[in-house]
Design a protein around this nucleic acid. Structure first.
Lengths: 239, 239
DNA sequence: GAGGCGTTATTTGTATCCAATGAGGCTCGA
DNA sequence: TCGAGCCTCATTGGATACAAATAACGCCTC
């Protein structure tokens, strides 16, 4: 019996709230990969019924955050180091193209957005204390920066594909694992990227972005157990 | 076959049946873009309740086949010519990379699959009558060929991203619009691709695939009203 | 006759209920 | 004591019921 929890917020669907919340839970690591999710439990936590929770689950499954096995249950999707490396490889492919397009197609508005985000990023990174919320904010701004470049590329399909990968990639909260020097390297890349885009040098922008993302992958490889090259997987025979 | 559709066995779950059926309806043009879909109507058509229909809708929305606006309703997603062109551009990017990887990483099994599919394709194309079901079968085999190359590339993330775009792209049933010479061109590309992969010439495979897909886009541009280059979108300023 | 407003009516979103099924525990036997 | 099979139970999938909201319609007014 739990139907009295009424959101004062007008127009917001319960299913959306649940979706956002589970998603955030996965991204922040509150829900760990492999962990089982039972609909009833979540329904209770949200003061809602199972219906919107189920709807949220289906969406999350489509987005690759959870895995629903027909009559068995739903678990938070766990990704192998190899898959994580793959995500970075594909992001490098997509976003380097986007960077090239951004250099060629951007307008003043795009540039101003990029500069604003980068300024905030620089300001925040200049502060000495790297507390949890600061790291969080840095991650957000970093995401905004990449989004802005995608937007400047003027290809919504490309943007959607890349964003999709970015979002699931962030569940490892990249910056949290990076050291300060790593953050500095990242921001340096951003500045170069900005210069390349501003001068409309597509080839340069493309190269920087590819290097930026593959560099991030390899930094991550130092922290986690990720193949430095996503390649082989030759071992495919009968195990 | 490469893809792992959740419902490899006969759909025990009603939601899956509904999903597949609506999807097919959209792909075959039975449900036209912009057309409104009411849950109750579909529920009646399938002899099911609204629950599985809703679940299917959410999945379809996630896959980009329909568009659900919060309290208003669901319509079959309509794509602008520009968006269709974009899809081809991104496919060219992803699948050319996959072709390169396939050339570098494939094993005997991949090659045999590719050859089998291509043989069937050749055999079918050799027949004179280009009836509706023949065209349909050609489309299917073409899709299998591309899937096989993706599989040989050994990057599931790349594969998923590309397949996603392929599926929504097929709703225009490409081959149906192509003339016979266009089919011949396509098969010729496939044969070259096969040769490039077999000789493990990654750069060549990549180039052929890019040319293959961008060529298809431009052929489509002749038939439909698609920009030959997806580029500009120079935002019309105040006319 | 056209446009704005109120009402009706269809349709979505959520809750609850029932059936089916896989999982895990328990018992019985070797 | 350990294993196999059965049985209970928790959990998912689907159906129905209900509330809220938007869209459609008609009516009234100008």
């Amino acid at each position: 019996m739990a139907g009295e929890r009424r959101s004062s917020k007008a127009g917001k669907r319960t299913a959306d709230r649940v979706y956002e919340d589970i998603r955030r839970g996965i991204l922040t690591g509150l829900l760990k990969p492999g962990e089982r999710i039972t609909e009833e439990l979540l329904a209770e936590r949200f003061g809602a019924s199972r219906t919107p929770v189920r709807s949220a689950m289906v969406r999350l499954a489509g987005d690759g955050f959870v895995e629903m096995t027909p009559r068995s249950g739903t678990i938070v999707k766990q990704r192998s180091p190899r898959e994580i490396a793959e995500i970075y490889d594909v992001r490098a492919l997509l976003e380097s193209e986007a960077a090239r397009l951004a250099a060629e197609r951007h307008d003043e508005s795009d540039l101003s957005t990029l500069k604003t985000v980068q300024d905030e990023l620089d300001a925040l990174a200049a502060r000495e204390e790297k507390t949890e919320p600061v790291i969080e904010k840095l991650s957000m701004l970093n995401r905004d920066f990449h989004h802005a470049i995608l937007a400047a590329g003027r290809n919504t399909t490309l943007t959607d594909s890349a964003v999709r990968l970015m979002e699931i990639g962030f569940l490892i909260n990249t910056y949290a694992r990076f050291g300060c020097d790593e953050i500095e390297r990242s921001l340096s890349d951003h500045r170069k990227l900005l210069a390349a885009i501003e001068t409309r040098d597509g080839a340069w922008a493309e190269a920087i972005m590819r290097s930026h993302i593959l560099g991030a992958r390899n930094s991550l490889a130092d922290a986690v157990d990720i193949p430095r090259t996503s390649a082989p997987k030759r071992v495919r025979r009968r195990d």
